[in-house]
Amino acid sequence: MKTTRPPLPSFPVATAQPSRASHWHYWRTDTAGIVELASWHGGGSLGLRPHFHDEAQLVFVLAGARSFLIGNRAITVSAGKAACIPAHVLHAPLANGTAETRCLNLYLPATGATDSLRVVDIREHWRITEGTGIRPAAVLRDFDALSPTIGNPERPKREDDSLRLALTTSRGRIGDLAASLGRSREDFSRRVSHAVGVAPHRFRLLARLNLARRLLRADEPIAAVAAETDFADQSHLGRLFRATFGTTPGRYRHG
């Protein structure tokens, strides 16, 4: 049965065209069904590290193109198209040589969001004009019908979910966690790498960074967030946060 999503607003063109900067611009909205939004205007790619989000990510490309490596698949999303990257799916932005790219990301709660990797043509479902802005509501409403999936190796399996849960709820050593599950460290690491695309310690780091995002959205002080997510200090969190999400914790918190 298809999930009914709440209506979405129109996003003014000015909002989707931030000034050129070397970082992503994130901001929150009171609209039900959207966790946050992000925009970027620049050339090529920021070269962010492979990462995942706890939310489903919709990428609307307004000009130029965005490219991603998802699993062993490289995909390119050109202007007039949108991509859905399901929650917890590892992806890495790729440089594509495009001189200028503008994109708008919507982050939706994982529950109820589409769980298939998709790229769809949305030119008939939106318009960009000075007086009207961007209206993604029709795209989201019809997303599942617009295009078949382009492969679904990323759909989480029950065992994959169990591994994610074990890694995020335990703060002990990886070897001890593997032993508690009746596996050797090497076997456990292979299974985690196959399931989530990265080694256990890297997955834990990304999970901590995603937790930091949630705490910063709740307006927690940056130093407190660094301590709660087990980073050495605020500077340590800041370096890894920017390398992964393209902005500093301070800019993100005040988005």
Rank of each mutant, 00 (worst) to 15 (best):
Pro9Thr: 11
Ser189Tyr: 02
Arg118Lys: 10
Pro9Phe: 12
Leu8Glu: 01
Ala92His: 09
Ala79Cys: 09
Thr76Asp: 12
Pro249Leu: 14
Arg158Tyr: 05
Ala92Phe: 03
Pro86Asp: 01
Asp233Ser: 09
Ala65Val: 02
Val196Leu: 13
Ile134Thr: 01
Asp30Val: 13
Ser78Leu: 01
Pro136Phe: 03
Ala218Leu: 08
Arg28Ala: 08
Arg141Cys: 06
Ala56Met: 10
Ile122Ala: 13
Glu124Asn: 12
Thr111Pro: 07
Arg28Phe: 04
Pro7Asp: 14
Asp176Gln: 11
Gly151Asn: 04
Ala226Leu: 07
Gly131Ile: 04
Cys103Phe: 15
Arg204Ala: 09
Ala38Leu: 09
Ile70Met: 04
Val192Phe: 11
Arg49Lys: 15
Arg118Ile: 05
Gly133Phe: 00
Pro12Asn: 02
Ala87Lys: 06
His254Thr: 15
Ala82Asp: 00
Pro136Tyr: 07
Ser189Lys: 01
Leu108Lys: 02
Pro50Asp: 02
Ile222Lys: 04
Asn72Gly: 12
Arg158Ser: 04
Pro93Ser: 03
Leu237Trp: 07
Glu55Tyr: 15
Asn210Asp: 05
Gln17Thr: 15
Ser184Phe: 08
Thr244Met: 00
Ser67Lys: 03
Arg239Ala: 13
Ala32Asp: 15
Ala21Gln: 09
Ala212Gly: 00
Ala226Ile: 10
Phe11Leu: 13
Ser22Thr: 07
Arg171Tyr: 12
Asn105Ser: 09
Phe143His: 02
Ser147Gly: 14
Pro50Val: 06
Arg141Asp: 09
Val77Ser: 11
Pro153Glu: 02
Glu154Phe: 04
Arg185Ala: 09
Asp144Trp: 10
Ile222Ser: 05
Ile122Met: 14
Gln17Gly: 04
Leu237Ser: 05
Leu216Cys: 09
Asp121Ile: 01
Ala87Tyr: 06
His236Asp: 14
Asp230Thr: 15
Pro153Cys: 06
Ser39Tyr: 12
Gly80Leu: 11
Ile70Pro: 01
